[in-house]
Design a protein around this nucleic acid. Structure first.
Length: 743
DNA sequence: TCCGCCTAGGTTTTT
DNA sequence: CCTAGGCGGA
């Protein structure tokens, strides 16, 4: 068995798998098989070393990764041992631990997790209650500062103490009040899940000790993306035993914006001077051409010397393609045409192809090109299912059934479906609750007995709402989740409400979404009834879109560069490689952020196994405005020899032009700039040169020589001379003459 | 209180 | 371009 687990590993991987005692840092380049190393290491620990899987804690970057790891372990060590292992993301693990331990903080385990939408609503309320202007204090920015503070383990009190400017002082007040409101709602936001765990460990050493004793072996993936809270958790859990196995790649650090500190991985050797450091430098994923281009991009960052030197045995492969489209719709069309062509050739399936972009909004142009072509696709992320209004409304009732003190959800559905509780009654309820000194939901309970400031009509409406919630609270503990949802849908006449609100057509669409939610709920029917609702709600909050990707369908994938981390595809298109988009304009002014964007491009490029296309557009529509774009500076770092320019597109279609002419608002927009100098500002648009139509690696067929592979192609006197390797020997053929058939 | 129209403003990236 | 929220009218 031992050999079986280790066979097929290279010496470095093998060392990483076998180094069981003491701290280990693995610096793993892209495609170096680190997932395999992690999994096989665990299997090795269980099978060969005899470690009890119950003693192993593996922190993965996505839930998908931990699920796949477990599936693999099912085979390697058997389902029983695979199940005994603890694995998950920081967030899901902490949520799990907190349900058990939060009583130490004097709170119930029935807490709610607020997602970013909830956070923003809550912050709006904070601003309102503190009489602050939303325009001057954008909720999102405020939340960003608070989130950074939490990631740095700065408490509201600390924050206030450290605030020396008026703006900081405002933030401190918002932070404190925000935490107050969260607390009143018995809610935690994403950051709190980790922060509260750290608090518990700090305040209750016996709890920490319990976890340290239980988890003798700790494995952390994507260590370069840990922030201070996560780092602290790792240090705590690793404790004195220090059986810590961290894997990461400083070149793939792309989460600085959420506090990830690349230095955590660089600091590892200081934290653990006796650490074994292992480099995984052989790449098993990409061709040399792709790897060379990617390395050129990362090397373009200059200064810091690179620790790893990646190489591959996968062969040279095809040149990386560089393509300029006229605008984003032509760029998208190029991508879709190319995918259709590759699939038609029989070499690839749709599921082998992925398009990656910097921001979600870019997916729209792609979708518009994909639909008319009939190419099956899945968009990861973007307008999320659980963020749709009708879904959130129904979910709000589920949340209230579990935690009726959730004020945000209470406010959300107090008057949905409309039951005559307007803004006035709502604020009246708030005021009255404060007067009574109880949470608003508790105030509803007092309505029957205490004299209240409501009109008889308002009072009845509020009581009918309370009656529904009470019914749900009772039902929640007795009914399976699907029946609970059915009860909500029926009792609230959700379908009728949606049709009334949105009309028959859209109302039905939204009703279908709601039914989809019910479908999702059936997945929890295997759990004990009392666990169904909380598990479902927690997963909805914590399971990322990428975790839910459909792995079986034959559909191409549209995904952001961030979410693509850790994935791989035979064919990858990177679109929108333009200044302002990558690096994003919000990052362009800060050199450190620019470097992070560079790494993002590196991550994207190294997702590709065989074919990589780098695409940018000459002009791009953003905010409904046309902007002239220049290709990203990072492309200049790739030696021209590594790139193959594909045909540039002239503005061919009438639609892309006429559309743009009328979309602009006000002065600029699509209107052509005036004056003789204006046109000179545009980069020259050279006439497309004659182009080779065969590329290296392309499979072809010849009437007499049979099947072969293109080894090279060049233009000679206006004709194309193609070098083809056939079964017997290589031959030079003229494209116009030889009638080569592309396969 | 409800409904519908209108306009202003918004897009990093994620758990 | 899209969307949420503000405002006027019933």
């Amino acid at each position: 068995m031992a050999e079986e687990l280790l066979s097929g590993l290279n010496p470095a991987q093998r060392r990483a798998v076998e180094a069981i005692d003491g701290p280990v840092l693995v610096l793993a380049g892209p495609g170096s098989g680190k997932t395999r190393v992690l999994t096989h290491r665990i299997a090795h620990m269980i099978r060969t070393v005899g470690v009890d899987p119950y003693r192993i804690l593996a922190v993965t970057f996505t839930n998908k990764a931990s699920r796949e790891m477990r599936e693999r372990l099912d085979i390697l060590v058997g389902p029983n041992d695979a199940r005994a292992l603890t694995a998950g993301t920081f967030h899901s693990l902490c949520a799990r631990f907190l349900r058990r331990e939060i009583v130490h903080l004097g709170r119930g385990r029935d807490f709610t997790i607020y997602d970013s939408d909830d956070q923003e609503r809550l912050m709006r309320r904070v601003l309102r209650e503190l009489n602050l202007d939303e325009k001057q204090n954008p909720p999102r920015a405020m939340l960003g500062r608070i989130s950074s503070a939490k990631n740095e383990l700065v408490s509201p009190d600390d924050f206030a103490r450290l605030s020396h400017t008026y703006a900081a002082e405002i933030t401190a007040r918002c932070y404190a009040h925000y935490q107050q409101l969260l607390h009143e709602s018995n809610a935690l936001d994403f950051d709190d899940l980790l922060v509260e765990m750290v608090h518990i460990f700090a305040q209750f050493p016996e709890v920490l000790e319990k976890y340290q004793k239980r988890y003798e072996y700790l494995l952390v993936d994507e260590y370069q993306d840990t922030n201070k809270v996560q780092y602290t958790l790792v240090q705590n859990l690793a404790g004195a035993r220090r059986n810590l196995f961290a894997v990461g790649d400083e070149d793939q650090s792309v989460y600085g914006f959420r506090g990830a500190d690349i230095r955590n991985i660089l600091r590892f050797e200081q934290d653990y001077p006796d650490a074994q450091v292992i480099m995984l430098e052989q790449n098993y994923r990409s061709t040399q051409a792709i790897l060379d281009a990617a390395q050129a991009v990362i090397a373009g960052g200059g200064k810091k010397k690179h620790l790893k030197k990646l190489w591959t045995q996968n062969g040279a492969g095809l040149q990386v393609s560089l393509h300029e489209g006229y605008d984003q719709s032509e760029e998208a069309k190029f991508v879709v045409d190319e995918i259709a062509r590759l699939v038609a050739s029989g070499d690839y399936r749709y599921r082998d192809c992925a398009v990656m972009y910097r921001i979600n909004a870019q997916s729209r142009a792609l979708e518009e090109a994909l639909i008319p072509r009939g190419v099956p696709y899945q968009i990861v992320g973007g307008p999320r299912f659980y963020e749709r209004k009708e879904i959130k409304d129904v979910l709000a009732y589920l949340h209230l059934a579990y935690n009726p003190y959730d004020r945000l959800r209470l406010g959300r559905v107090l008057n949905w479906p409309g039951r005559g509780i307007g803004e006035r009654s709502e604020s009246e309820l708030q005021r009255w609750a404060i007067e009574l000194g109880v949470p608003p939901f508790q105030a509803l309970r007092e309505l029957e007995d205490l004299p209240s400031p409501f009109s008889a009509r308002a009072k009845n409406a509020l009581l009918s709402f309370l009656a529904i919630i009470d019914e749900l609270i009772v039902a929640q503990s007795k009914l399976p989740l699907t029946e609970l949802i059915d009860m909500i849908l029926g009792r609230l006449e959700v379908r009728e409400t949606l049709v009334r609100e949105y009309g028959a057509e859209e109302g039905d669409d939204r009703w279908r979404n709601v039914q989809e939610l019910r479908n999702v709920a059936t997945e929890y029917s295997g759990l004990p009834i009392e666990a169904q609702l909380p598990t479902c709600l927690e997963e909805i909050a914590l399971v990322a879109e990428v975790d839910k990707m459909d792995g079986k369908a034959d559909a191409m994938t549209c995904i952001t560069l961030h979410q693509a981390k850790g994935l791989e595809y035979p064919v990858v298109f990177l679109v929108g490689l333009e200044e302002g988009l990558l690096p994003h304009s919000r990052s362009s002014d800060d050199p450190e952020k620019v470097e992070e964007e560079r790494r993002l491009l590196y991550v994207g490029m190294t997702r590709a196994r065989q074919r990589l296309y780098l695409c940018h557009a000459f002009r791009r529509l953003s905010f409904g405005r046309v902007n002239i774009s220049t290709r990203t500076r990072f492309l200049a770092d790739i030696p021209a020899a590594l790139l193959k320019q594909t045909k540039k597109r002239a503005p061919t279609t009438a639609s892309s032009q006429t559309n743009n002419m009328f979309t602009g608002r006000g002065g600029y927009g699509g209107a052509p700039p005036r004056g003789p100098t204006a046109t000179k500002d545009l980069p020259p648009r050279p006439v497309a040169p004659a182009e080779v139509s065969f590329f290296i690696g392309q499979p072809v067929c010849h009437a007499t020589f049979g099947e072969g592979v293109v080894m090279g192609s060049r233009l000679v006197d206006g004709d194309e001379e193609v070098m083809v390797s056939f079964a017997d020997k290589q031959r030079k053929l003229l494209a116009s003459f030889a009638r080569l058939e592309k396969l």
